[in-house]
Amino acid sequence: MKKTTAENYRQRVIRVIEYIHDHLDDDLNINLLADVAFMSPYHFHRIYREMARETLNATIRRLRLQRAAVELISSTKPILRIATSATYGSPEAFTRAFTNQFGETPTEYRSARRHSKANEPFVAMLPTAREEYRDMYNVEIVDFKPVNLIGYSHQGDYMEIGRTFEKLFVYAASHNLLSDSTRSIGLYFDDPKSVESKQLRAFAAISVADQMDLPETGEVPESNRIPGGTCVSLLFKGSYAELEKPYDWLFGHWLPQSGYEAADFPPFEEYLNDPKDTPPNELLTRINCIVTRA
């Protein structure tokens, strides 16, 4: 089962690469490509990056530049037209990107290879060498009970979500919403290694007993809910700045071999101690992902 599941993940990522190659002029957005892979867009970025060894945007950029290289050799199209076709807004931006990938400017590349043939068929492949993960983690499969939440949306660097939590706790304390059973939870909608820092989306939340009507004073939090179901849970001990290491391992190594699929709900973290009075290397974070059987 595990081997079959891992191969299934690989074939779905290959299908995405082939789709990108065949639709380089289209709007290749995350939701469309996640649909091609039959994966949730909340998790697709991470799985793709770990299996392809590059981000989704890097693949799109690389394949568009490879097509541009073919056009430089096999056609007489002006470089500006080729740059536009590769979705670059100016010849200067195209020249920088092309030179970075090929080590030559487009003009130099075309001049040196004007009589070459560039009609080899495209074959989508993934790296054969597997990523070596230095750290391994213990994963539990748990029956997660639904949790009602209130909180604030956060956009920007995930390392700055603390200020959103601070605002939330001030509101919750002033309205007597905190108790010993209150849980601190963050929902994370994007992969920080694939999405620009300023575009990252998250939700800083605390648990509440029931969906409630909040007092219309100040900046009222939004309501949200984590559904119940089978859940993959990984306990990480260490600084918040190191959380990407267990994420990479979970989505790049454990999940493709597990026999499970990530459900269409974002990964979420539960913070088990208080960073105000806990040394960074003693912080406990539980990384959770709702899953279904593959």
Rank of each mutant, 00 (worst) to 15 (best):
Y240A: 04
K276E: 13
Y260H: 15
I30G: 04
V13E: 06
N281C: 03
I47T: 09
W254S: 05
F268M: 06
E282G: 00
R293W: 06
A124H: 07
F44N: 02
T105I: 06
I73N: 01
Y271C: 01
A58L: 06
T182N: 11
V208D: 09
N176F: 07
P227E: 00
D25E: 08
A69M: 03
E160D: 13
L32G: 05
E92G: 10
I161C: 08
F144I: 07
A52V: 02
S207T: 12
S153R: 11
A205G: 11
H115I: 11
E50Q: 14
P221S: 04
T87Q: 14
S223F: 07
K237D: 06
E92P: 06
Y88I: 00
S239N: 11
H115G: 00
N148P: 02
E7V: 10
F265V: 13
Q11L: 15
T99R: 03
F236E: 14
S116K: 13
N273M: 08
T128R: 13
W254K: 12
W249Y: 09
R61A: 01
T107F: 03
I161F: 05
H115D: 14
L24P: 02
Y19I: 02
G103M: 12
L149D: 12
S207Y: 10
Q257F: 15
A37N: 04
F268G: 01
S239H: 10
D274G: 10
T99C: 01
F165M: 03
I17N: 07
M159S: 08
F94R: 03
F94Q: 05
N31G: 03
F44D: 01
E131I: 15
A205H: 10
D26F: 06
Y260I: 13
G259E: 12
V142G: 00
A97D: 03
T107S: 11
I20R: 02
V147M: 05
R130E: 15
S194K: 13
D210E: 09
E7R: 09
H253Y: 14
